[in-house]
């Protein structure tokens, strides 16, 4: 800070107009340096690393993150439930808790389970010095943050679709929705009548999924058409991350009615 002040005074003294634009130095709070994850503690303790395993061979255990850890000679492979040695080679997709000797960087014991193991540190969070990677890491500019619409992929969204049908739709006819997820069965989803001109349906669909749909009166001969009587492209619905999605749409014509 002192250097900045001196520099500013010096600039003013030399009549440099730019000096007037210099901001007033703001005192900065001293920051605690982040923990150096690459530096092991002076007295390293064994690390317990958990994750889903895709392979264990050639002296490595590799997790679904792509991280490979080196196995110690004679590393024990145990069943997490019984604590006994595994009877067979673990299959890709099993979950594991690996005990990593922080001094040698080798995995000494691995306990396997068919269910996720919460103990320890996720493999993506461990100091990178233990992860074996022959090449120098190179950033990937293609990787981008996820689109907002996929934020809650795990949930379901209540989708309410209301369709207005042509006034000449026979009152006694049913209206259906045909979708690609239903194999384009013309009677896949039956709409509920709301009044003379409107039908509706409420569906619980997986958030993040996408489907295409059209309306019919029960067969492809009575499928909807565009205003000119031509076959219309299917509607495209992406179930975005929200609790309720409401769709209002219109059928202009039916194939079998003028």
């Amino acid at each position: 800070m002192l250097v900045s002040i001196i520099a500013a005074i010096a600039c003013i003294g030399f009549g440099d107009a730019r000096a007037l634009a210099l901001p007033t130095p703001i005192p900065q709070a001293s920051q605690t340096p982040p923990p150096d994850v690459s530096a092991p503690s002076p007295t390293p303790l064994p690390l317990l690393v958990n994750g889903q395993v895709i392979d264990i061979e050639r002296g490595f255990i590799v997790f679904t993150t792509g991280d490979a850890l080196r196995l110690a000679p004679g590393a024990q492979l145990l069943d997490d439930t019984s604590g006994k040695p595994l009877a067979s080679t673990p299959l890709p997709g099993m979950f594991a808790a690996a005990t990593l000797d922080a001094t040698s960087g080798l995995v000494t014991t691995v306990r396997f389970s068919h269910k996720p193991i919460e103990r320890g540190t996720a493999v993506a969070q461990i100091p990178r010095q233990y992860v074996v990677q022959a090449s120098t890491p190179v950033p990937n500019p293609e990787l981008a943050p996820p689109p907002a619409k996929y934020h809650s992929l795990s949930g379901e969204t209540l989708v309410r679709i209301v369709v207005e049908v042509p006034p000449n739709t026979p009152f006694t006819d049913d209206v259906f929705m045909t979708t690609d997820t239903g194999g384009w069965n013309p009677q896949a989803v039956k709409m509920q009548r709301q009044d003379a001109l409107h039908f509706f349906i409420e569906l619980r669909l997986r958030t993040g999924s996408e489907f295409h749909y059209l309306f019919t009166r029960g067969s492809w001969n009575s499928a909807e058409r565009d205003r000119n009587g031509l076959e219309r492209a299917p509607r495209d619905l992406v179930i975005e991350g929200s609790d309720l999605l409401s769709i209002d749409t219109t059928v202009y014509r039916w194939a079998d009615l003028p």
Binding site: Y150, T181, G208
Partner: peptide
């Protein structure tokens, strides 16, 4: 009519990162 499960476009695993 029995239509079997056909949700070919259901969502898959959550994406941590997107290309």
């Amino acid at each position: 009519t029995l239509l079997f499960p056909a949700l070919a476009h259901a969502a898959g695993e959550p994406l941590e990162q997107h290309a």
